[in-house]
Amino acid sequence: MRQFFPVEDLARDERFVQTNMAERLADTRNPMEPASNRKSAKSRSAGNRLTPDRPDASDRARGLMHGIMVGEIQALEGAGRTAHDFEAGDGSGDTIPFELKLDMARQAWDEARHVEISAKLGDWMGTELGEFQENTVLFEAACSNDPVLRLAGVNRALEGLAIDVFTQMKEFGDLAGDPYLEFCEDWMLADEVTHVKMGSDWLRKVTEKDPDRRTKALEFQQVVDKLFSFGGARGDHEESSFKLARRFRELAGFTDDENDTINKLGVDAFNERSQAVKQAQDAASAFADA
């Protein structure tokens, strides 16, 4: 078995179809609801947040749940690979502390349970396995060959995203009165906070005597966080689909400054994406007019 495993080789059965971020960004359609289409600016569903009073609430929740499930599969694979890819050692070079390997194995079990939970929820919501395309961006972006970057990418950026998404889904389940969704998301959220905290603690510990390495890891995390804001779909701003779950993030070891930075990355990504969509749509209109 190779030491490092490329994203394009992630094994799936024939029901799953994978895509990547480049392909997704090549889609020039507007992912946001145009303001002109909204019934009322004061309505809860006025923005892009997933709330039960959106007309498309059920299908969006199903799509998001499937996205969570494939994200959990990739997180399971990522944790397993970290347990495998690096020898136990003092944390220098390609080694990681023995106890960190144990934590990664524990995380693999947690993520396996999350896949089980998500698959059951998908069934409950009427979604078939593989019904939606799987974006492999999580594994691709998070699973660096440097163990410290992997801590930043997987445990802080990816699992941090999971905190935001699960908080959103938990709220959705609560508002909809869904007896299973809120219950399950609550449990998964508890695990994710643990995983992010694990990443925060290990990152601090492993880079204790190497400030350059820590800086590089945090810079890498910002790059991944921007990617994981999916063109501005995450953040505190009105147009975002997911709000930053600041309270849970704080529990997991994120500082206010870090959360503010992630929020700003989301706003930047949203503006870039909006501009790109506008350009593409102008070009399409010009083609249609011709």
Binding site: H84, D85, A112
Partner: peptide, 20 residues
């Protein structure tokens, strides 16, 4: 842990995670 990413069978993928 390493094999989790290499097996396409979903149920086995998850069991390997627990056994890991």
């Amino acid at each position: 842990g390493g094999w989790i990413a290499t097996v396409p069978e979903l149920d086995i993928k998850m069991r390997l995670g627990a056994h890991c």
